[in-house]
């Protein structure tokens, strides 16, 4: 049986984009493609909530059907995990609501059910969240101001991997940084089931001045479709083998 795969981009940034396409528009595009975009905005130690122009963080996530959160670097590990899992539940919940509307009609959603029934539906949501396969592309802003936060980012990504790999479902992670040296994003880690060999990955790249969040997101989307088409090929190949075997 096909359990299905959830796709997410996790964008970690500390400020506004200032170059290229509007990231909010790209996020809307991602949503159309079935990829949720989660955004974590990191505050500096001396920054207060709301002081910084982090409204964009919320806008991107809202438009991308994901979850957003603004935190200080010290809270990053728990936040990364919470945001990812919340977005998963949200996506699954969305799918289930669609099914419910189809079965019950009248825009009936989970919230409209009596508490008893709601509990039963929730068990299904939890069950899917535990077993579904997950692909997370992590997109890290490495513009100059992020420099001192990168070690914390790295730690929290390893922590995320520990959490997600405690599930029954399979995971695939990849890490990209932006801005890249030549392209808008640069690959730090290809798709891998486990993030534990991250040491030094962030140090390879010198940090620059511009923050091209939009172009970076756009390119990240392509990495999923690439992967998907490769998957398809692999899937076809599997079928072929099965046929020849029987």
């Amino acid at each position: 049986m096909n359990k299905g795969t959830l796709r997410q981009i996790l964008l970690i940034t500390d400020g506004c984009s200032n170059h290229g396409e509007d990231p909010v528009a790209i996020a809307a595009l991602a949503r159309e493609k079935g990829i949720a975009i989660n955004v974590i905005g990191i505050l500096s130690q001396n920054e207060a909530y709301g002081e910084h122009g982090l409204k964009e963080v919320e806008d991107i996530a809202m438009s991308g059907g994901g979850v957003s959160q603004i935190v200080y670097a010290t809270q990053l590990a728990q936040t990364v995990k919470m945001v990812t899992q919340k977005a998963m539940t949200q996506t699954i919940h969305g799918m289930i609501n669609k099914e419910l509307t189809q079965i019950l009609g009248d825009e009936q959603q989970m919230e409209d059910l009596p508490p008893e029934k709601r509990g039963q539906v929730m068990e299904v949501v939890d069950e899917i969240g535990e077993t579904v396969n997950l692909e997370v592309l992590i997109l890290v802003d490495i513009s100059a101001s992020m420099d001192d936060k990168l070690p914390t980012v790295q730690e929290s990504l390893i922590d995320l991997s520990i959490s997600l790999n405690s599930r029954t479902g399979n995971n695939q992670f990849s890490i990209y940084a932006f801005p890249g040296k030549k392209q808008s994003i640069e690959k730090l880690q290809d798709w891998t089931p486990q993030l534990d060999t991250l040491a030094k990955t962030f140090k390879k790249i010198s940090t620059g001045g511009i923050t091209p969040t939009g172009p970076a997101l756009k390119e990240a989307l392509e990495l999923f479709s690439d992967k998907r088409s490769k998957r398809k090929l692999l899937g076809d190949y599997d079928e072929y083998v099965e046929e020849s075997g029987s």
Binding site: A77, D159, I162, S163, L164, S166, R167, T168
Partner: peptide, 24 residues
């Protein structure tokens, strides 16, 4: 049992201390 732990507090979490998974 067998699923991923839903909620935890870092200080009391073995994953945080690098001493194991978060599998329930």
């Amino acid at each position: 049992v067998g699923r991923a732990v839903k909620e935890y507090t870092e200080f009391f979490d073995r994953g945080f201390w690098g001493m194991g998974s978060r599998r329930a």
